[in-house]
Structures are given as structure tokens and as C-alpha cells.
Simulated assay, not measured.
Amino acid sequence: MNTPPPWGKKKKPVGPEEFLADLIQKIRDHFEEQKNKERGGGEPPPQDSSKPDKERNLFAAAGKIAAVVAALILLRGIFSSFYTINPGEQGIVLRFGKYARTAGPGLNFKIPYMEDMIRVDVENVRKEEFGLRKTAKSNSDESESLMLTGDKNVIEVAWTVQYKVGDPVKFLFKISDVKQAVRDNSETVIRRIVGNMDFDYVLGNRAMLARIARQELQRDLNRLEDGIDKSEEKHGVEIVTLQLLDITPTDEVKPAFNEVNEADQDMKRLVNEAEEQYNRVIPKARGSAKQLVEEAHGYAVQRLNDAKGETARFKAIAAEYEKAKEVTRQRMYLETMQTVLPQVKQLYVMDKPVLPFLNLNAAGGSVSPAFLSPAQENQSK
């Protein structure tokens, strides 16, 4: 039989679970005593002599735990009241869940247990892809690229949207799901634009359609934030670029489309060759025609001046001829001979005419048949 030691039972350390159990039991005993006093029946149960010591231990342990908890709460509040915002970020401070202020990069302070802070990256450019093959980095689906043009043709359109945070407060609280809003509104805008255009126009005006789609997408997102488009204000989502990557027909009509495209390229090539030939020949012909016209004008002026000169010279000679006919006639004869004689190869001077005329230019000095009599022609034969 185990007998307790004379110095009493050894006290064991009280843990948190034992402390809570004893505290609950003490509360129950207190309420039972109050009920018994109100009924006036029976005597209170005998109390253990060690109960005061146990209560003092419980209260001491509770005080220690409360002090530790209070110290932890205080340290946590002190450490959480200071925070650092990195470059390219902004901190949105909420006081009891309501927007209070925006904190810039650097070390900042907030009231502990009253204010919360949300970091927003305002420099990073976010990207959404549409109509591309689904990969680990892309959430796009092939079905979203199929669109119907204004002339009832089906094409596949692939595009990307890049956006960043403009106003971090509006970015957080004006639109619940920014990523989904960008995807839905972007697809709506592209389908609306393509549906109002013809097939050939969409294929040939990619840059212009991308610019129009970017403006309309920004306007739609602005209306989601404020209900109206206030272009002068800074909005939560700022569209950086919208680029149409690929616009192609579906696989079923690609062979026919390729043939049409090749024919169109051949037509453009022939047109370019014709324009090249035109630019090479027509200016040259125009230059030659202008040259001939200028030469004709020059020739006309020359002939006119020559005629005027000859007329003046003839008038001068006629005037001199009237003054001295023999002298003028002789001078004209000599001037004519001076011009003609240098061009003559052979010169014969004869006092009397010679019959028959000899063809002096013929080889061997033979008589030309043109000057022979019929008898002489028979002899020669």
C-alpha cells in the first residue's frame, strides 16, 4: 500500500490543457455552489485543503500565459507596423478594410492591427495570348481564333494583348478579375471589328485593325471601372499594345486561298513589270518627241534665216548687176566655177567639139555605146 510522503504530494507542472480543464471545472463548481445556496438544501460538499493552492497555481499560470501572449501580440504589432515597398511597386493601405492611402517605394509605417497593406506591381507588363495553340505558358484556345467576316467567310485570327497597372486602387477594387475582363473584352472587340469587315480587307489592313481594336478595348475597360469613358483620367488597366499575329483562312479553304493568293501575286508582278516597262519607254519616247520638235523648230528658224540671207544677198547682187552687168556676170561666173571645179575629178579643155563623143570617164578610153552609130554597134558586136 502506497502511503503519501509526510511533506505532502509533489506538485507537477501544469500544462495549458490541464489549466483549461481545471478552469472549466472551477467554473462548474462555482455555479453548483450558487444553485445549492439558492435551494437551501444539503450541506456544501467538503472542500479539499489543497484547493486554494491549486487555484493560486492556476491563476499564476494564467497570468504567465497572458503575459506571454501579450508580449507576442506587442512584438508582432511592432514588427508588422514597418514594411518596405520595392521599386516598381506601390502599397495600397486599407484601414479597417477601406482604402486609406497609397505608399510609395521605400520604408513605410502602418498602424498595427488596424491597417493592412496590399502590394501592386505597377511596372510589370502583363500579357494575354489569343488564338495560339495551348501550351504550358499559354491559356489560349484554338476555338477563340475562329471568326466570321462581314462577307460570311471564316478565318482564324491570333493576337496578343499587353497591359499594365495604371491606377493601383482602381486595378484592385474596380474590376474583380482583371485577367478575365481583359480576355473577354478583347475577344469581343476583335470579333466585332472582324465581323464588320470583308475577308480581303481584314487580310490587307492588319496594322490599322490592331490600332482600332486597342482603342476600343481601352474604352470598354474604362467603362467597366467608372461606367463612362473618362479618357483624361488614369485608369486601372492601361493597354500597352494589341498586336494581330496571324490572320489565315481555315484548313478547309487554305488550298483555294493559296491559289487565289498566288494569282493575286502574279497579277501584282505583271502590273509592276508593266509599270516598269511604261516608266522606261514612255519617258524616253516623250524625250525623243520633244527632241524632234525642238530640232524641227531649230531647222525652221535656220531655213528662215537662210532664206532671208539669200534674199538679201540676191537683192544686193541685183543692185550691183544693174550698175555693171558685164562685170557682175563675169564675177558670178568665176565664183560659180570656183565652187564647182574643186569637185570635178577630170577636166578636159577642147577648142572644137569632137565627134563622136568619147566616154572619157570609161576605162581604156573606150567609146560609150550611147554615142555609137548603128553600124559601129554591129561592128563592136
Score class of each variant (00 low, 15 high):
343 Q>F: 05
105 P>N: 04
309 G>P: 00
280 R>H: 04
209 L>R: 01
19 F>I: 03
22 D>P: 00
196 N>H: 04
46 P>W: 03
332 M>R: 07
353 P>R: 14
137 K>G: 10
215 Q>L: 13
57 N>E: 13
101 R>Y: 09
320 E>K: 14
98 K>N: 11
82 F>R: 10
307 A>V: 06
31 F>V: 09
316 A>S: 13
109 F>S: 01
17 E>V: 08
350 M>T: 07
120 V>S: 03
352 K>C: 04
349 V>L: 15
332 M>G: 06
16 P>Y: 10
359 N>I: 00
322 E>T: 10
314 F>Q: 15
116 D>H: 06
295 E>R: 15
97 G>V: 06
151 D>E: 04
344 V>C: 08
315 K>T: 09
146 L>S: 09
162 Q>S: 13
111 I>F: 10
348 Y>I: 07
209 L>A: 08
257 F>H: 14
6 P>D: 09
342 P>C: 06
103 A>E: 12
35 K>F: 11
199 F>W: 02
375 A>V: 08
214 R>K: 15
93 V>R: 01
317 I>F: 15
297 H>C: 03
251 D>N: 13
328 T>W: 04
10 K>I: 08
307 A>I: 10
44 P>W: 02
30 H>L: 12
222 N>F: 05
88 G>M: 09
199 F>G: 01
173 F>Q: 09
56 R>A: 13
97 G>W: 11
69 V>P: 00
86 N>F: 05
123 E>L: 11
130 F>K: 00
165 V>F: 06
161 V>H: 03
344 V>G: 02
261 N>T: 09
139 N>A: 15
253 V>R: 10
265 Q>D: 09
266 D>A: 14
69 V>H: 08
376 Q>L: 13
206 R>G: 08
136 A>P: 02
77 G>E: 05
310 E>Y: 14
237 V>L: 03
308 K>W: 07
71 A>Q: 13
146 L>H: 13
354 V>P: 02
235 H>A: 00
94 L>P: 05
207 A>T: 08
204 G>F: 00
40 G>H: 01
82 F>N: 00
19 F>E: 13
366 S>P: 04
11 K>A: 15
46 P>I: 15
219 R>Q: 14
275 E>S: 05
102 T>N: 02
128 E>W: 01
339 T>I: 11
277 Q>Y: 11
43 E>S: 08
244 L>F: 15
79 F>N: 12
252 E>Y: 05
354 V>Q: 15
304 L>G: 15
101 R>S: 12
143 S>R: 12
281 V>S: 09
366 S>G: 07
292 L>S: 03
244 L>H: 00
353 P>H: 03
157 V>F: 07
217 L>M: 04
167 D>R: 03
346 Q>D: 05
364 G>W: 05
131 G>S: 08
301 V>L: 14
115 E>P: 07
205 N>A: 06
184 D>C: 02
180 Q>N: 11
276 E>S: 12
4 P>W: 04
106 G>P: 04
56 R>E: 13
38 E>R: 14
327 V>I: 06
190 I>Q: 04
108 N>M: 04
322 E>P: 00
96 F>Q: 10
68 V>I: 08
86 N>W: 04
346 Q>V: 00
